[in-house]
């Protein structure tokens, strides 16, 4: 598997006003993205995700370090030949209609004539924007802009798709549709790099992740390696039995009405909980083993910093 994107020790500081004081934002970021994977770039707001992406795309220049795209130095426009990009808050020419907007970028990418029309039609359908195609972008909602923006990013049949917070501004159905599209991109053999501060988005579809915190990569690797399969605790919701009965078996988190939410940490105690419920003629409403999630890892790391 080849490396599609590689960052080596990238540093970037922003100038603050006229004073020559600089604010370091990226403090030696290194990671690589393998061909054909969905790579998640995870970090809280302000961690430096967008800054990293801007460095990759040459919108800003790193103070030091090296970035290669398909083995080509990112400083050369040619490196972006097979790259598609959807910015964080899509900013587009708002006087164009959706169709004109796609036509403009197609022209820019050297796609003309019949092929252009076909592509526009195809991608409008893919992102579900056929009906709004002849509306000016100024009349689009944020989610609609996100969709047309994704279409724009895919026009040149990119081998690497870079998406900055692609699910932002989408409703739940939109998020699902976007996830499906992204997974499909992978099936087509494309590599996807997506940033997010929302764990679920990344957890569900990414193969590998890098976690950035305050400008430093604090962890990276395969999701399976980062998350252990071990059961952390089991959440049991019980009806009809007072919480006090279980005090020796687990931690009762909350009670509402005659329901008790119980956290049981040892697996062998679960049977005893069930027995106790039966003895008291109560009932088990639900029983849910909780494995470690990316969120747990993430929260732990943020705490440890």
């Amino acid at each position: 598997m080849g490396k599609v994107l590689e960052l080596e020790n990238v540093h970037k500081a922003y100038k603050l006003g006229f004073i020559l004081k600089k604010k370091p934002v990226l403090k030696g970021v290194s990671f690589h993205v393998n061909e054909g994977e969905i790579f998640g770039y995870l970090g809280p707001n302000g961690a430096g995700k967008t800054t990293t992406i801007k460095c990759i795309l040459n919108l800003i220049f790193p103070d030091s370090g090296r970035i290669t795209i398909f083995g080509e130095d990112s400083l050369r426009p040619r490196a972006r030949q097979k790259v598609g990009f959807l910015p964080e808050n899509p900013y587009f020419y708002d006087y164009l209609t959706g169709r004109e907007f796609l036509a403009f970028y197609a022209d820019l990418l050297g796609i003309h004539g019949q092929l252009r029309e076909e592509k526009i039609k195809y991608f409008l359908k893919l992102v579900g924007m056929e009906r709004a195609a002849d509306l000016q972008l100024r009349k689009y909602s944020r989610g609609m802009l996100q969709r047309i923006g994704l279409a724009q990013a895919l026009l040149n049949d990119p081998a690497l798709v870079i998406l900055d917070e692609p699910m932002g501004g989408l409703d739940p159905i939109g998020r699902k549709e976007f996830r499906d599209i992204i997974v499909n991109l992978k099936k087509e053999g494309k590599t996807v790099f997506l940033s997010s501060h929302i764990l679920q988005d990344i957890e569900m579809i990414c193969d590998r992740v890098a976690i950035i915190l305050a400008g430093e990569i604090i962890n990276q690797g395969y999701l399976g390696d980062l998350i252990s399969e071990k059961v952390l605790f089991t959440e049991v919701i019980i009806g009809g039995v007072p919480a006090a009965e279980f005090s020796h078996l687990g931690e009762s988190v909350s009670t509402s009405g005659d329901r008790v939410l119980l956290k049981v940490f040892e697996e062998e105690k679960i049977d005893r909980v069930i027995n106790l419920v039966q003895q008291n003629k109560g009932k088990i409403i639900s029983l849910l083993p909780r494995t470690e999630t990316l969120e747990d890892i993430f929260v732990n790391m943020v705490k440890n910093q």
């Binding site: 795309l57 919108l59 587009f92 923006g149 724009q152």
Partner: peptide, 8 residues
Amino acid sequence: FTLLSKPI
């Protein structure tokens, strides 16, 4: 942003 992210 979008414009310059293209190979130009």
